[in-house]
């Protein structure tokens, strides 16, 4: 059991990150799409469609960050200073868009600044998260178990591409969410946005999939050697099939399927990245086994996590169920 703890924790943090990316992804995506309508009523609907959930969604980010600290303090202590700039930018952006949920209503009718804060904050937070991912994949300079690089080491065309890719990806989740959760003209336009975004996202997925094995022999070896290539070949095939399914269900104006399909695309992309990186937390430097916290610490929190996670998922589902269905115009406590 003790020997497996780091792998179990890596899996748990992976699950938190995936849940975060999907759940905060759609509400950040709704923010990213804010500028594409100028109608106040439509913006109200968009915001109301995510307002009861955003705070819970963002908590997964705290669990992901906190979990990394608890389970892999050595990695946390390297990654955070190395990606200082994009992380601070992300936090500042999250502040703006988070308070905008309340301030925008409180400010009405003079809320245009908070529209900008909500849209801008969402887009910048998404971009910064992509840059964090790209910067991490690019590698970090480590000496004696500590970060030893400069403040802008993370900057690279690849990291910028990851940032843009994640903005598009979140916007896709947001658009398919709106397709499911709003009605009228906005719903129709959400489907149009989703189609365009699907193509953009596929473009970025392709770029990352080609770029990483070309740049890193380790990743190429993982994917293109026998028998891995056999086991892993379903990943790109499934991605293509899912993308096609999202497209056709959008054509057929299905409410749920496009969103589910987009979530599937995210899960597959994450799986692909995990396959490329495992067991590294800091590529080529630190594995989950090197970075692991004391087994007694990992164990202590694991017990609580395994007991509490089902409860958390239970009431999260309950909240989503409570607010199911399309947004009723004018709904809210404001």
């Amino acid at each position: 059991m003790e020997a497996n703890l780091p792998a179990i924790w890596a899996a748990l943090i992976g699950v938190s990150v995936v849940l975060y990316v999907i759940m905060d992804g759609f509400d950040l995506g709704v923010g990213i799409l804010f500028p594409f309508t100028r109608d106040e009523r439509e913006r109200d609907q968009m915001m109301n469609s995510v307002a009861p959930f955003w705070d819970g969604n963002e908590t997964w980010l705290v669990l992901g960050g906190g979990g990394l600290w608890v389970a892999f303090p050595a990695a946390y202590a390297i990654i955070m200073p190395a990606l200082y700039v994009p992380i601070i930018v992300m936090l500042l952006a999250l502040i703006f868009r988070g308070v905008a949920f309340e301030f925008r209503w409180a400010a009405k009718p003079d809320h245009s600044l908070w529209d900008i804060a909500f849209a801008g904050g969402s887009a910048v937070a998404a971009f910064a998260q992509g840059v964090v991912l790209g910067g991490l994949l690019n590698g970090i300079t480590v000496e004696n178990g500590a970060f030893a690089g400069g403040p802008f080491d993370w900057f690279s065309p690849f990291a910028i591409a990851c940032g843009l890719g994640l903005v598009a990806g979140y916007a896709l989740l947001g658009a398919t969410w709106l397709n499911m959760r709003v009605s009228g003209d906005l719903e129709v336009r959400a489907r149009r946005w989703a189609k365009t975004l699907l193509l953009v996202v596929l473009g970025f997925v392709l770029i990352v999939s080609v770029w990483t094995p070309l740049q890193y022999e380790r990743i190429a070896a993982r994917w293109f050697t026998w028998p891995n290539i056999l086991y892993l070949s379903p990943v790109p095939v499934l991605t293509a099939l899912l993308a096609a399914a999202v497209w056709t269900t959008l054509e057929k104006e299905r409410p749920f399927a496009p969103f589910a399909g987009s979530v599937g695309l995210f899960v597959l992309s994450f799986f692909g990245l995990a396959v490329s990186q495992f067991p590294y937390l800091v590529p080529d430097q630190l594995t989950v086994f090197d970075a692991a916290a004391a087994p007694e610490s990992q164990m202590f929190l694991l017990v609580g996590t395994l007991a509490l996670l089902p409860v958390i998922l239970g009431y999260t589902i309950f909240v989503y169920w409570t607010f199911r269905g399309r947004v009723r115009p004018g709904e809210g406590y404001h």
Partner: peptide, 29 residues
Amino acid sequence: GNVVGPLIGYEVLTAFFLEASFLGIMLFG
């Protein structure tokens, strides 16, 4: 991290999710 980390972890698991999720119902429900 070995000592303080899990305490923060338990804060997230036992409090943050609880507050954030039921806040949605409290505000909008």
